[in-house]
């Protein structure tokens, strides 16, 4: 599982934020577009693409996209 690929998939869940804004250090909960629907979309995307189940707490207790990347990798 590769970070760049994950960043693309993560960004695809957002409607209005350009892909350049996404990096491993991005604090996703501070993004303007972030909200409950986007959070649920991330959970659904991760289940679809990696067959890993993220819980709401995983999203709320992590900070950066890289944090989520590491959680998913550990559950593959």
């Amino acid at each position: 599982m590769e970070l760049n690929d994950f960043l693309k998939k993560f960004a695809s869940v957002f409607e209005e934020t350009p892909i350049e804004k996404f990096s491993g250090d991005t604090k996703y909960m501070e993004m303007e577009e972030w909200g409950s629907l986007v959070a649920l979309s991330v959970i659904a995307m991760v289940d679809d693409e990696y067959e890993v189940e993220l819980q709401g707490d995983d999203i709320r207790n992590s900070n950066t996209i890289n944090d989520l990347f590491e959680i998913i990798k550990s559950r593959l």
Binding site: L40, S41, A44, M45, D47, D48
Partner: peptide, 9 residues
Amino acid sequence: DLTPFPFVN
């Protein structure tokens, strides 16, 4: 199962 529609399968 809260799932945004684009992810319904």
